[in-house]
Design a protein around this nucleic acid. Structure first.
Lengths: 325, 325
DNA sequence: TTGAAAGCGCTAACAG
DNA sequence: CTGTTAGCGCTTTCAA
């Protein structure tokens, strides 16, 4: 391995001079600078990033930590983050947080391998995030309401989105509306449930416990629980699914039971994933600005990093009406 | 910041002892080990990963560098890589390579911030990859045929897959088959074109230049070029699209012109992305083992890292017949 | 304008 | 079993 030392030797200068020269400091005469650059090129010198990081006590990289790297859902968030990170001349690394406390995510945060982070990973809990965040490592969370000096959140208006969705169903004349739930401990799910509840109550309907079906945000589960539910006596005329994935599974279940969508049963999802508009029938759903979430969050990382104040924010959602309602 | 030094002081031992103790070396008596651990806990000590990396000259992290972080196509590859990396107790970071030579990917490779890499990023060229690969930084490429001591490839059998696809069309009685091409400089595209060509020639058909339509792998482009093409005189009865995304765009174009699929025009794609089975009509396509690609590649990274020999490999594809043919 | 030297936080000979 | 010490490769005072 060729180090700065080697370059300095070859150029016949001191290491410090070589360092300055390669960083194009104006302290060094043009002549020596040229000499050093040449030596560097001749030797094929590559600065060692880790060593520089250690010395400068920063990495100029931002981490984006996700629960599940392979979820298509995140694509747009990632893009938003990437764009802002690049604009600041920093690097982005995406890591998994699925292992909770012994995930890459947590490790990188603890060991200060990133200068800031955007987190969308319920498995890392509030206490852990609070523990690692500091002025030199601001964290923006996208999946909970956590706010302190160095921790801010960017959320979507889950409650209102769900409220819009269910109100829409009620306005269309559907009154027996099932809530197809996500995991109970999911913040998004909790908020969406509140929106469902509020829409029902404000329209004079009661919350019926037997119309709350628990799922886990996956298509498969959506299919299974709705299949099971429809096989029972209970008649319903609409489903509000806490996300699109489950809605897609539910649609399949509904069609297999020969119910017509939306005549017999209407359905609305949440997220507006790409598949939503391709499915048959196209799915009415709640769209939220995923790309903007990424942008907002990342801008906030840099704000805090630069010592200015950042304000947590809640972004609006939008009802997208398609043929499933 | 609390360092190992602080822990050592607090525990009343030397730094080295503290280091050994925290790494649970058996050289240190249980008593001192306990004492050091306690001091560490009391102070809230966190080892500094960067410092350790510098000293040990390794990072225990593997990089996966993709052209476009947000492509849904990659999900399964990522999962395969992640699983193997975790199994080895290493960390995975995913980075973008879209900036070519000044991308995060290239930088991390040059600066040895990862101990090995899996690359699926045409923008980083062969010479650059060859330059950075070494025994301590093996690289597996998924998008080209590049092979040396420290560089291996894992590819899918693009040529055969395309051959299968086109043969299938011919067997079904379609003879005027268009090739909807990806970018000319894409390795995948080139191979798929060869397969198209071979299938035609072996069945006694000629290659007709006007039946080769150039696209860029995106849905939008597929829609546009096929719309344009169908508006012309030339009658055709089938399309082999170099990937599913373009096929999906093409399907929309075909339907808008009121042609029936597959009666008037049949179409087959390549990749078997999730959408392929949801689209209307469901798309016949070539499936390839993306998850396995990730696994194979990552296993090879570790093989080379451990000094054993790894063999580049080409994985088979499979024709998935659906209603578009 | 350049060089010597200290040190970022850690590990690992080596000596005791 | 524990401590002393020498770096890993780099940046950055400080002095010359």
């Amino acid at each position: 391995m060729v180090t700065l030392r080697d370059v300095a030797n070859k150029a016949g200068v001191a290491v410090s001079t070589a360092s300055y020269a390669l960083n194009n400091s104006s302290k060094i005469s043009l002549a020596t600078r040229k000499k050093v650059h040449k030596a560097s090129r001749d030797l094929g010198y590559q600065p060692h990033g880790i060593a520089r990081n250690l010395k400068k006590q920063k990495t100029e990289t931002i981490g984006l930590f996700l629960n599940d790297l392979s979820g298509p859902y995140y694509s747009e968030v990632i893009q938003g983050v990437q764009d802002v990170v690049s604009a600041h001349g920093y690097d982005l690394i995406v890591g998994s947080a699925s292992g909770g406390t012994n995930s890459t995510a947590y490790k990188f945060l603890l060991e200060k391998r990133v200068d800031g982070a955007v987190i969308l990973a319920p498995k890392i809990n509030d206490a852990e995030i609070s523990r690692v965040a500091k002025a030199s490592l601001p964290i923006i969370v996208l999946d909970r309401r956590l706010d302190s000096d160095y921790i801010k959140y960017v959320l979507i208006d889950n409650l209102n989105g769900a409220y819009q969705a269910v109100s829409h169903l009620i306005n269309r004349g559907y009154h027996k509306i099932v809530y197809l739930s996500g995991p109970e401990d999911s913040f998004d799910n909790q908020e969406r449930f509140k929106g469902y509840q509020r829409a029902l109550l404000e329209n004079g309907f009661n919350l019926m416990p037997q119309r709350i079906i628990s799922g886990n945000f996956t298509e498969k589960e959506g299919y299974q629980v709705i299949s099971g539910f429809l096989a029972q006596e209970e008649r319903i005329d609409a489903i509000f699914s806490a996300n699109d994935e489950m809605a897609i599974g539910a649609i399949q279940a509904i069609r297999e039971m020969s119910f017509k969508i939306p005549d017999d049963i209407a359905i609305v999802g949440f997220d507006d994933i790409r598949l939503a508009s391709y499915i048959n029938p196209p799915l009415t759903t709640i769209r939220h600005p995923k790309y903007e979430m990424g942008r907002f969050a990342t801008n906030m990382v840099f704000q805090v990093l630069h010592g200015s104040k950042a304000e947590s924010v809640v972004l609006p959602t939008q009802l997208i009406t398609r043929q499933s309602t």
